[in-house]
Design a protein around this nucleic acid. Structure first.
Lengths: 341, 341
DNA sequence: TTCATTATCGCAAACGTTTGCTTCCTATTA
DNA sequence: TAATAGGAAGCAAACGTTTGCGATAATGAA
């Protein structure tokens, strides 16, 4: 509030008996300024610890050097890693980021967008909430001429840069791996199908089964929200089936961990009786009992590339609708390591 | 860039044939404006989807409604939870947050401060890096009249609001619990001692031992950075001691998990041969084998309170140096559950 | 009718910059 | 010597608001 009045360009001008224009030009390395006065300005600026007022700059230049980021939630390790990538790339270019979380709510997500637009961010990077079904809010961003980049959870129908992992292929690989380990009844815990990712992962899972001449059994597919609340419930449901699964492709490592816990409580052995593979390769997965196989999605890289694409869009005037796919990696551990059945 | 020129107060004024002052007054609910014109302004504003330019407002009012947050790293679940608390509290008051991570580097932390000050944030919430030793940068923030609040990792010598957990008591409780479970040679993995938290946790550990008439044995204290790289190394070192520990108070759950893994590989049983207790109660800790006892620090609440204190400081003009301690909670599980003796 | 009061509104400055245009001065050239 | 070029600097507008002050008109009272 009573912010000690910081030194402005005017102070320098007054103290040097010159006009603000000249000071400005000296500071911004423009032409039309005598080397001597320029030096004097720079010296005084340094001495007075002058810092340009970025608010005034933003108003004048109509750009804030801030990019907005909307993610479902920070506590999700995948997204916090992605934020790291975004931030590193942004700060390299002199940009700051303003993070909002949608808490997986379409409504909050909409508010976030409003907030960021009102703050005049130079661009927005977003990974949509699992509720999100309408593309209107995003269309609105684009209509306003604000660069927009999707990452991971994309809205595929919009003509704007996107970066995501090879969801289909990742699921195909993971499922095929289970088959190769001798599993024939493979369950899949799927995310909500309005998410592009969930749809393609499910398709990858299904196609992998077909590719190995296995039938796709709808009773082995669980449609879960990402909330971890009912993991035990559907795990027991699967295990109590007349013909229970002998392999599980979980929604993520967190879910897989809890599933393994439930499975073991039931007296079943992993991987002998049932194989489990996760998703995202969380940091604890190497230390679980048994250690958990997983699919590694390079979250940091996803974020970094998203920022890269956005900055390209912000700085150049001609938009390029680039769609970048980053490869995933199968990380094999004990939870799927068994002699072929 | 080619941001479609949004509608301003001028547009409304022109279209209504009145001055911008009147429009402003109508919009801000000031006096001195005819109810009829006011209504007309409001209606047109709505119709044109007028959004006040927050940049111009910031310049004029000298406040940005943005609060800066500096944390060691987003991927650390403790801090991402805290961010959640900060954000929820901030947005309730119409504030946005700008997050920077120091990556545990004092140098980057300094840059972050610079960045945030240049962005004219209305206040700063910070949890210092583990490298941080100097208090100068923070003094500088305060000298500039920018409200500053520390949370969790505080610099205790500065006269500014702080919120933290009861580190001493938490460590005392955890250590005492191990003693009560029959441990007499309890190892402690400590964080770097320039951190206030680490010092007090160490003291709580030591005092608990003394309180139970056990000797404090320096060879059982490992000074670790938070980097997880050398966990296996020092775990083996401890286990290979002539008189190895029969209890471990780990630096956090992540470290504890890896330690448990190493311990089991060595053929030792948990908790029979050695008890392990962690810190922070990570979400996987209920599912490890054995499940991991831990100390729960309410990170979200810590963040929320930090924002609460900061906003109080921002909005009122007279600063209050409040120091808030939030209680921790022992979460007991199988890794310390054994018959005494 | 006249004066004072009040309601309503506009003017213009201010926040801290940038920048197109103008101005002034010096030095070069014919 | 006069014309001109060009270097160096200032003026003022602009970005979108808010707000103190003054202006105008209408209203009421005397």
């Amino acid at each position: 509030m009573l912010r000690s009045n910081s030194v402005t360009i005017k102070d320098i001008a007054k103290k040097l008996g010159i006009s603000t224009s000249t000071v400005s030009r000296a500071l911004t390395n423009h032409s039309d300024v005598n080397p001597k006065t320029k030096e004097a300005v720079l010296e005084l600026a340094q001495q007075l610890d002058y810092q340009p007022n970025s608010i005034a700059l933003s108003l004048r230049k109509k750009q804030t050097h801030v990019i907005g980021v909307i993610i479902p939630e920070t506590v999700n390790r995948f997204f916090s890693k992605a934020i790291g990538g975004i931030q590193d790339e942004a700060s390299k270019a002199g940009y700051n980021i303003m993070v909002c979380q949608s808490n997986e709510s379409q409504h909050i997500e909409f508010n976030n967008i409003q907030t960021l637009l009102n703050s005049f961010v130079d661009g927005i990077i977003i990974s949509v909430s699992k509720e999100t079904s309408s593309e209107k809010p995003f269309q609105r961003i684009m209509d306003k001429g604000v660069p927009l980049v999707f990452f991971d959870r994309v809205v595929d129908t919009l003509e704007t840069p996107k970066v995501m992992s090879d969801n289909y292929e990742a699921a195909f690989k993971a499922t095929s791996h289970l088959v190769e380990m001798g599993c024939s009844r493979i369950a899949r815990i799927s995310g909500p199908l309005n998410l592009y990712n969930s749809r393609w992962r499910l398709k990858g899972y299904q196609d992998a089964l077909l590719h190995h001449n296995l039938e796709v059994n709808e009773e082995l597919v669980i449609y879960s929200s990402y909330a971890a609340s009912n993991v035990r419930e559907y795990t027991n449901h699967l295990l109590d089936l007349p013909e229970p699964p002998d392999g599980i492709f979980a929604i993520n490592d967190q879910g897989a961990l809890e599933m393994m816990h439930t499975i073991k409580q039931k007296g079943l052995r992993i991987p002998e009786d049932i194989c489990v593979i996760g998703f995202n390769n969380d940091y604890f997965s190497a230390f679980t009992e048994p250690s958990l196989s997983s699919v590694e999605i390079p979250a940091y890289e996803l974020g970094r590339i998203a920022a890269e694409l956005l900055l390209k869009e912000v700085q150049l005037d001609n938009p390029v609708y680039e769609k970048r796919i980053v490869p995933s990696k199968l990380v094999l551990r004990d939870s799927t390591r068994r002699i072929k059945g």
